[in-house]
């Protein structure tokens, strides 16, 4: 048990290893089967498994790819264990619930979550293969980070005045959209192209062009900016089929 805990520390490399370990053991005690007093009924067990799976997927950041993958497979096992049958697998219902919980925990606004979830969740009765499970969870986490970046971007764009100019916002998002659109070059060339498109010079030009008539114009609030930015992201998410 201690070895496993240390392994998790090494994998996740938290900033505060002691606090991480404390949290780890606390969670381990709280979510162990014996501890679940009120968890005798089916619903309680279900919730407990969900909480445990959530905890697993949060252990490591998704950029630590190996650790993250390990944790996801732990979560997958945890969700598929239990139940009456021997190998029930993960069904669409609990998978969708997990994804929703991840997004809600990240305080993603509802109107941003729902188009994403529509793409990556499965129907309640469907068996979810591990690859799809992994992709779904990863997508949620990447979206959370994407949102955080978009939020910071808005802070830059509004110049600490609280509201950003709509034209500038649209210009920046338009440039990003252009860069995301698959050009017909192979990978290294495309990266160069995007690097040039998203460089400070090009962006400055785009923003400058947007502001060409120096009139005061409508502003775009943070919510709308985030919604438009995530829409770009979500179009690139591969839907489950």
């Amino acid at each position: 048990m201690v070895r496993e805990a240390l392994l998790k520390v090494l994998e996740a490399r938290p900033d505060e290893p002691v606090a991480f370990l404390a949290g780890y053991f606390e969670k381990l005690v709280l979510s162990s089967p014996e501890a679940g007093d009120g968890g005798g009924d089916h619903h309680g067990q279900h919730q407990q498994r969900l909480v445990r799976a959530l905890w697993y997927v949060h252990l490591a950041h998704h950029s630590h790819r190996t650790a993250f993958n390990n944790n996801i497979s732990m979560a997958y096992e945890c969700l598929s264990a239990g139940g009456r049958r021997k190998k029930p697998g993960v069904n669409g219902k609990i998978y969708s619930e997990l994804l929703k919980r991840i997004c809600r925990d990240g305080e993603v606004p509802e109107e941003i979550i729902s188009p994403l979830l529509r793409k990556i969740t499965c129907r309640d009765h469907e068996a979810v293969p591990f690859d799809i499970f992994r992709y779904g969870v990863l997508t949620c986490f990447v979206l959370l980070e994407f949102l955080a970046k978009a939020d910071t971007l808005y802070d830059v764009l509004d110049d600490s005045s609280g509201v950003a100019d709509k034209r500038v916002c649209l210009a920046v998002l338009g440039t990003l959209e252009e860069a995301l659109q698959a050009s017909n070059f192979s990978v290294p060339v495309r990266y160069l192209e995007v690097g040039s498109k998203l460089g400070p010079d090009c962006l400055a030009l785009a923003m400058d062009r947007a502001l060409v008539d120096r009139k005061v114009s409508a502003s775009m609030n943070r919510g709308e900016f985030l919604r438009r930015a995530t829409a770009l992201f979500i179009t690139k998410v591969k839907p489950v089929d």
Binding site: D131, Y135, L138, K149, V168, T175, L198, A229, F233, K238
Partner: peptide
């Protein structure tokens, strides 16, 4: 005009995240 360097750095991070997700798509 907002600081182009900062804007660029954030936009590039957003692009990287999207690109990374596309790269880890599954065929499943």
């Amino acid at each position: 005009l907002p600081n182009p360097d900062k804007v660029s750095s954030e936009v590039q991070k957003m692009w990287v995240l999207t690109e990374m997700l596309q790269a880890s798509q599954t065929a499943a």
